[in-house]
């Protein structure tokens, strides 16, 4: 437990200090949402209708692009070697790093979403639904992204490889996240159905992500 907490605390400290990546995701999120109306037009009715989708796409890209250096930084300075050698199972170490990343990148996105919802003229119900689905769904994005981050580190390739690998994997999360948000406002499906599936996807990713990423890292150290 001490080791897990140490990893969590360390990663959050690094993210919050100078040079850390916390808040970068939110800034990206804000920028994407700001740019959208320039392409779509300032029609508030249209924005209201597609607002949940815009917010979900923005959050999806923001949470994945920031994952790039999650393991690569530890690999480059030799920390990953020592973490792999430690008595803490690598799957748990990966999960701790994923949680730290979600707390510093994913959670701020959830908090920012209602404010950005105002820009898109969303109704209070829609804002609540988007925030709730993002709260449930962004951990799935982060933990699925762990696999891509591990692959990019094992292959010593950074940059765009991660999103290219991971974005297709996030399709189900996107479908049910947006479906649940829309269901809360316009229907016709009740909110509960897609939302429960979204919860299930998140729970599955919490298990699959760390195991797949752990296995990748262990193989990739060769």
């Amino acid at each position: 437990m001490t080791a897990l907490r140490a990893l969590l605390v360390r990663d959050m400290r690094i993210a919050l200090r100078v040079g850390g990546g916390a808040m970068m995701g939110v800034l990206f999120f804000l920028t994407v949402v700001t740019l959208m109306p320039f392409a779509i037009g300032p029609d508030l009715e249209l924005l209201r209708r597609i607002g949940p989708a815009i917010l979900w796409i923005g959050a999806l890209l923001a949470s994945l692009l920031a994952l790039d250096r999650l393991f690569a930084a530890d690999h480059d300075d030799g920390s990953l070697d020592l973490i792999l050698m430690g008595r803490l199972p690598i799957e748990l170490a990966v999960a701790a790093k994923g949680l730290a990343h979600w707390l510093t990148t994913g959670l701020p996105l959830v908090i920012a979403a209602p404010v950005l919802g105002l820009f898109l003229n969303l109704e209070p119900a829609a804002i609540g639904a988007v925030a709730l689905t993002l709260l449930v769904g962004t951990p799935a994005l982060t933990f699925t992204g762990l696999i891509g981050a591990a692959l990019a580190t094992a292959l010593r390739r950074g940059g765009l490889l991660l999103p290219v690998l991971v974005l297709p994997l996030t399709v189900p999360v996107l479908i049910f996240g947006v479906a649940a948000s829309n269901a809360a406002v316009v229907g016709p499906v009740p909110f509960g159905t897609p939302f429960t599936i979204l919860c299930a996807l998140t729970l599955a990713s919490l298990v699959v992500g760390p195991f797949a990423a752990g296995a990748t890292l262990r193989q990739g150290m060769e």
Partner: peptide
Amino acid sequence: WVWDARLTSVLVMFVMYLGLLALWRSV
């Protein structure tokens, strides 16, 4: 919020301020 020209320009400027802050923070 409406995507009025004046407001939108200010919003873009705000985003640029935040980008500048992020730059200061990253080095």
